[in-house]
Write a protein that binds this DNA or RNA. Structure first.
Lengths: 319, 319
DNA sequence: TTGAAAGCGCTAACAC
DNA sequence: GTGTTAGCGCTTTCAA
């Protein structure tokens, strides 16, 4: 008789005492089965190493904890197939699901969305469906970045592309192309890259080979990697070549040079995801979808286009 | 009859088909109740924002996933009381528990350890118990750091202390004191600080005020914060003052200057924790406890002691 | 008010 | 080999 009702206080006390004595406590599993809810929600992320998802995880965990809910996490390793499996599995173990930057194709996501409900999407929209979605307007961010670079005189950009399956990557590319048709003599080269430091590092040489004067990286991690690779090739940043990131992860301001990037409210994504989920689970009114606008942070990794284009390894002091 | 046994293949097929048609899938919750196991393990960390714990989380998650297990995470917010509650709660929802750098007092941990089993401890040992423990030999790391600083001529150190309840912080302090008695004229000042960037940032002024020529930070985050604060005070690193971190988080090499620190195998802690847990859950032989030895990474945030001790705000170019 | 019983969806042990 | 039943530990409904 733990909880609420109209019970004789004396009985309550006796039961409580007995429970104490036997140090008994209710089994959450049995409770879940009987109640039909687990007080747990799940989060699926493509990559736990990505600071973006770490912050989402934290925001969601904190918010859920405030309401007495636990968090189940799973990593899909950027693999769409695995992601789908994990999602259904995790969903069945919990009362709700948040999918961060899901890699599954639209069609599949659409067909899954019913089985996964209550579901909220992060960085992914499902047009025409009623699945709540919180996203970042990557196109707007890229647009600002390009404008900034153009103001510095850059006309030839190279884009270090993110994971194939990332829709936010596609958004960035679309925005880049939109910008590319604007001016005459504007060149945009796209380079398959990835999402990690290593990916960026490996792409450095190819990026330089394109003859671009500025590199736009998929995210901060890639930018850091590229920056490190560029420097190993003897290039000065931003003297020889400019570089931009995306995300404004905590360390972006502490690199040398500090990284020009676009900031997004990572933690907030997690918190608001909880809000939507909670509303969904309780039949309350679900807040509108939002698209967070990135904020351009101009730091020192970008500068005017050099007199002579950077090309391959240069002699030190040749600036 | 999904699973294994000696069943007529035709029957199997028919059942499978029916299941497919009704798109039925077994309920993990009911399964857990009947089986008495959840195929889930829990991880409790003091602070999800700490890269150290993020990596432990990732290592554990990956390793557990390989064996088909899910991960429940909870954050105690550096709060020992909450930690204990969370631990029992999480443990009851899962088949095993890993406690990362637990903040609960030894006595309480000891009394809890039975109820929490299968349990593995990270960065915390429970002498005399049979609870597997994986830890980092912080004392050894600090010893190396001090030796490095002393070789550079530093005699006055200030330690930016971590969370009160952190045993690894106490280990560092003990090692520091052991070093302090070694030489004559050796001074060690201890400053209450914390574990975050902000904590380090706020401690910068007080650190300088001690007149120390080198600051030993509790971890990399604190070191970054202090570094940033020190620079705001007009100090050059390492020209005016040296600084060391601990952990070698991914960005330690990309700050300016790159941080001298001690590296520890964070991911490996998580992976091996899974190994111990798995052995415990299956009655297999549990591998011995290990104490990982940090590796000193000398980078550019440390240097020779300056001619004149740094003290408060200095004029630029006064070096 | 309090106690007894049915059932959440599954597995395991048992007869058939 | 195959179908049936008891029971995991709780909540809820319904009598007493």
């Amino acid at each position: 008789m733990n909880g609420t009702s109209t019970v004789a206080p004396e009985l309550v006390a006796r039961v409580r005492a007995a429970a104490e004595a036997l140090n008994y406590e209710p089994s959450p599993v049995a409770r879940s089965l009987a109640l039909g809810r687990t007080s747990t929600v799940s989060l699926i992320v493509p990559d736990l190493a990505n600071p973006m998802f770490q912050d989402v995880l934290r925001g969601l965990s904190n918010a859920a904890a405030e309401e007495g809910h636990r968090l189940l996490v799973a990593e899909s390793n950027e693999n769409a197939g695995e992601e789908a499996i994990l999602a259904v599995e995790a969903r069945r173990r919990s009362d709700g699901l948040v999918l961060a930057s899901p890699r599954v194709p639209e069609e599949e996501l659409r067909s899954l969305s019913e089985r996964l409900a209550p579901l909220v999407l992060l960085n992914r929209e499902l047009p025409g469906s009623s699945v709540p979605s919180l996203s970042v307007d990557y196109a707007a961010g890229i647009k600002e970045i390009v404008a900034h670079l153009v103001a510095f005189g850059h006309r030839h950009l190279v884009y270090l592309s993110g994971p194939e399956a990332s829709t936010s990557n596609r958004d960035r590319i679309a925005a880049l192309h939109a910008a590319a048709v604007l001016g005459p003599g504007f060149t945009l080269t796209e380079l398959a890259c990835g999402a990690t430091f290593e990916d960026g590092h490996q792409a450095a040489r190819a990026a330089v080979a394109t003859g671009a004067t500025a590199v736009v990286a998929y995210n901060d991690m890639v930018a850091f990697g590229a920056m490190s690779g560029l420097r190993e090739l003897g290039l000065d940043i931003p003297g020889d070549i400019s570089i931009t990131g995306f995300d404004d992860i905590p360390f972006a301001r502490y690199t040398s040079p500090p990284l020009t990037t676009a900031s997004i409210p990572r933690n907030e994504l997690g918190r608001q995801a909880w809000g939507r989920l909670w509303a969904l689970m309780n039949g309350g009114p679900v807040a509108h979808n939002v698209r967070f606008q990135p904020r351009l942070l101009v730091r020192d990794s970008t500068g005017p286009v050099p007199d002579r284009p950077a090309s391959g390894r240069r002699r030190k002091g040749s600036a």
